[in-house]
Design a protein around this nucleic acid. Sequence first.
DNA 1: AGTCCTACTGTTTTT
DNA 2: CAGTAGGACT
Length: 629
Amino acid sequence: MKIDYAKELNEEQYRCVIAGDGPIYVLAGAGSGKTRVLTYRTAWLIENGIPPNRIMLLTFTNRAAREMLTRVETLTGLNLRNLWGGTFHHIGNLVLRRMGKSIGLSPDYMIIDESDANSLLNECKTACRIPQERKFPKAKVLKEVISSSISSLQDIPTTLSARFPYLLEFTPDIERIEKEYRKRKRKQNLMDFDDLLYYWQQVLCDGNPIYNFNHILVDEYQDTNLLQAEITDRMAEQVRNIMVVGDDAQSIYSFRGADYKNIRDFPLRYPDTKIYKLETNYRSTPQILHFANQIIERSDARFKKRLIPVRSNGGTPTVVAVRDPYEQARFVVYKVQELAGQGVPYKDIGILYRAHYQSAELEIQLYKSNIPYIIRSGARFFERAHIKDILSYLRVIVNPRDSVSFKRLLKLEEGIGDITAEKIYDRISSVRSPVHKFLSTEPEVAEKAVPGIKNAQKILSSIIKLSPSEAIKFIFESGYKEYLRLTYPDVDERKEDISVLIEIAREYRSLTRFLSEITLSEPATGEDTYFIQRGNDSVVLSTIHRAKGIEWDTVFLIYACDGGLPISRSYESIEQYEEERRLFYVAVTRAKRELYITYPMRSSRAKAYLSASPFLKELDEDAYKMMWL
DNA sequence: AGTCCTACTGTTTTT
DNA sequence: CAGTAGGACT
C-alpha cells in the first residue's frame, strides 16, 4: 500500500516528513501534529528502503511509542517488531542487556525503582555512620543530588554548590554516601533509572559498531537531559541522521534534569541542521489558543512561534471562582453531567491538576455521582505496598544479593522488625549468594523471630522452581493473605490487585524479564485496576505532567489558585516559577473545544484565603469570562 | 533491645 | 495516604 503523504499531511508537516538526510530540527507547537510527523516520517523512511531495525524512535512514554508504532504498522502494512522504539530507559535496558558486558556489567542486573533506590541510599547513610547530631537531608534530596551529578556529567561538589547551596556543608558526607551507594549497587547487581542512561552512554563511548543507526528520531526533545542528548549525539555521530522534535514552551521536566539548552543549542551543535516549524494548530478553537498564547507570551520562551488556529470559533474559556475545594468538585461534576446530557462521551472530558492530592475531593464526588472515571495519577500499580511485598520474594530469587527486597520480605513476618532483618542480612551479606546461605542455615535470633524465619525460608525454597504466576499464588497463600487481613482495612481491593498481578505474570515465563519490564513501564493491564470504569467511556483525571501529548474535547483545570498552580514550592526560584507557567500552558492546550479553569477561594484544611493564580491575573480581560460561585 | 501500636503531619511533578 | 516519631509493651 502506497501512502499519499502530500494528501494526508499539511504542507509544513509534509516538508518535515520528506526532508532528506542529515540533522533535522522540528519546532512543533502544541496541537500541531508532531506525532503525525514522527509516524509518517518513520513510515516514509521504511518505504524508502531503510530497514526497520536501523531506525530508533525515542519517545517520552511507553504509551507514546506503542501508539506511534501501531500507527506506522497500519500505514505500511508491515510488522515492525524489530524497529527500536520506546523510552530512553526502555531502550537503554535493551542495549545494556546485550552490550553491558563490554563495560563490565553483568547482563542479569535488576532494575530498581525510585523508592527502592531510596531505601538503598538510607542503608548507605547508616553504613557511613553519619553523626546523629547532624541534621542530614532526607534520602530523597540525596538521590536528587546524585542523579543531578550524573546527569550533568560534572563532579559532585560543583553541582552541589550550584543547585543546592545549602547542602554544601554536607558535601564530604554526600560524597561518601554516593560512593557507598555505587558500591552497593554494583555488589548487589542493581541498576537505578539513572544508571540505565549512564551506562548506555558508557557503552556508546566504547564505540560499538552495532549502534550505527541509520536514523534516530527523538520526540519531546525539550525534556531530555544532558545525558540523553549525549546518547543521541553519540548514536548519530557517524550517519548524522537525527531528527529532534520538541517545543520549548512545553518543557516541564527540569526537576528531573531536563535541560532546555539541549533544544536551544541543537542548531549550534549541528550547524547544517534543517529547521522546520509547525505552527498550525489543529486541536483547539481560536478562543482557547488565544488564551494559551497569552499565558506563554509573558514567559521567557526562547523560540517565538505563533500558533495559527484552523478550527472554527468556539466558546470563550471560563474561569470559575468557587468557595472551596468541595464546591469545586461539585461544580466540575455538575458540568460533566451537563455535558454528558448533551451527548459528550465521558472519555472526551479530561480533568487536570498540578499534584496528585488535588484530585481527592473530586474523586469522592465523581464516585458519589456514579460517573465512570480513570485516574492516571497517584501510586502506580507496581509501586503499591502490597504489590512490592509480593514482588520482593521474586526479586530475591532472581537476585539473591538484593538487600532491600530481602529485608522487606523478612519484615513481613511477625516478630521481625528493622533491626532483626538488618542483623540477618548482615550476617549473610559477605557470601556470593546470601539467600542460599539464609536457606541453609539456622540463624541465631530471638525466640519470637524463629517461626517467621522458618516461614520465610519455606516460601523462598518453595518458589524457586515455580513460574512467576505460580510463585505469586504460593506467596499469597502462605501467610500473605493473612498478613493483608491483619494490616489493611481495604483487604478486598488489595486481594484484587494481587489477582491482577497473577494475570500479568501469566504472560511471562522468565522472572527476570517479568521484573525488569514491570519496573520500566506502567502496564496496560494494571491500569484498569484502580479506577471505576464502565466500558471504555470514562472521564480522565490526570496530573498535568501525565497529560502531556493527550487531548480532550473538554478540559477542566482545577486548583488554579496561587499556591496550587503555581504550586507554593515553586516560589523558591524564578526558574521553577516559570516552569509552572509552562505547565499552565500545557494544561490549557490539551483542550479542543471547551476549557474551564476553576480555583477555590478557600482551602479545605486551613481556613486560609486563596486567590486566583497569578498567571490568570496577568491575562487580558477578553481572554476569558469570569464566573463566581 | 527490639517490636508494634497510635497519633500526627504534610504532601510536586516521573522514566 | 504514607512515612515517622514517641511510647508502651515483651
